[in-house]
């Protein structure tokens, strides 16, 4: 899935895969994104942390324009995202997204969930799409459940299918919007393991999460948000051991004490 030219071991130079410049957004009176500048290099894994309401989910959703922004630009692999329309749909196809609530298509089997977009958006033949889907489902450990419906799977299994569904489009970058927040605790590990495997394979990833273990292990960079702003942007090691701001220290104090 990874770009052939990317260094498997970490981010590489050149055009950033994601570039946000001067992005602003309001929800009514709430200034939910304030002058966001963010670059994610090819093959880089960026974990976005922050208290709830800090705008981190909105930031993630703004990257593929599921959340329209008011000012500023978002570029994917050097191409600015256009307004809603067929051009935007084409660019979105290159950006995989995994949601907190899985959002598997409830009326389709697991296999159909994974083959739908490659067939309908990329024009891949049914047999090829199914072969690739089975490979991906095996990779996330759901290979023997492909004829079931989403409601028949556990949350952890559904989320792994959702990852396979996004990977089936061979995306340039994967966005994870709190992928484990809706899961029972015993299922968090299986999803985190799949994500860790992707990171190791060199996938460019933006991950909004509360899983500090994943941030420490797999992230190249940690972005800390508060009140719609990026407050810190540093390595996991320096963020967790030497947070530079009071807000980050406060946040870490709250989540690491229990």
């Amino acid at each position: 899935m990874a770009d052939e030219t990317a260094e498997p071991s970490g981010p590489s130079a050149g055009t950033p895969m994601v570039r946000m410049t001067g992005v602003n957004k309001h929800f009514g009176d709430l200034h939910v994104l304030r002058d966001i500048d963010l670059e994610v290099a090819r093959g880089e894994v960026v974990v976005v942390l922050g208290p709830s309401g800090s705008g981190k989910s909105t930031l993630c959703r703004a990257i593929n324009r599921l959340e329209p922004v008011e000012t500023g630009t978002v570029e994917i692999d050097g191409v600015p995202l256009p307004a809603e329309g067929s051009e935007l749909a084409k660019l979105r196809a290159d950006v995989g997204m995994v949601f907190q609530q899985f959002n598997l298509f409830a009326h389709m089997t697991i296999l159909d969930n994974v083959t739908l977009a490659p067939m309908r958006v990329r024009g891949v033949s049914k047999s090829e799409a199914q072969e690739r889907a089975r490979g991906l489902l095996d990779r996330v450990g759901i290979g023997n459940q492909s004829e079931k419906y989403p409601a028949q799977l556990s949350g952890g299994q559904q989320q792994r299918v959702a990852i396979a569904r996004a990977l089936a489009m061979e995306p340039k970058v994967m966005l994870f919007d709190e992928p484990t927040s809706a899961l029972d605790p015993e299922m968090v590990g299986e999803v985190i393991d799949v994500m860790g495997g992707l990171a190791k394979d060199g996938m460019t990833m933006v991950v909004v999460t509360h899983e500090m273990g994943f941030a420490r292990r797999a992230a190249h960079r940690v972005v800390f948000m508060a009140d719609g702003e990026i407050v810190e942007d540093t390595t996991p090691d320096s963020f967790f051991s030497r947070p530079a701001t009071e807000r980050a220290r406060d946040f870490l104090g709250k989540i690491l004490t229990h």
């Binding site: 593929n64 599921l66 749909a89 959002n103 309908r120 958006v121 959702a162 996004a166 489009m169």
Partner: peptide
């Protein structure tokens, strides 16, 4: 139909008509 269904379809690159008719 939950808004997430249409969002997931759009995130995969399906257009408005496809999202509506398929999902």
């Amino acid at each position: 139909v939950s808004a997430g269904q249409a969002e997931a379809a759009r995130a995969l690159g399906l257009g408005f008509t496809q999202t509506l008719s398929l999902i």
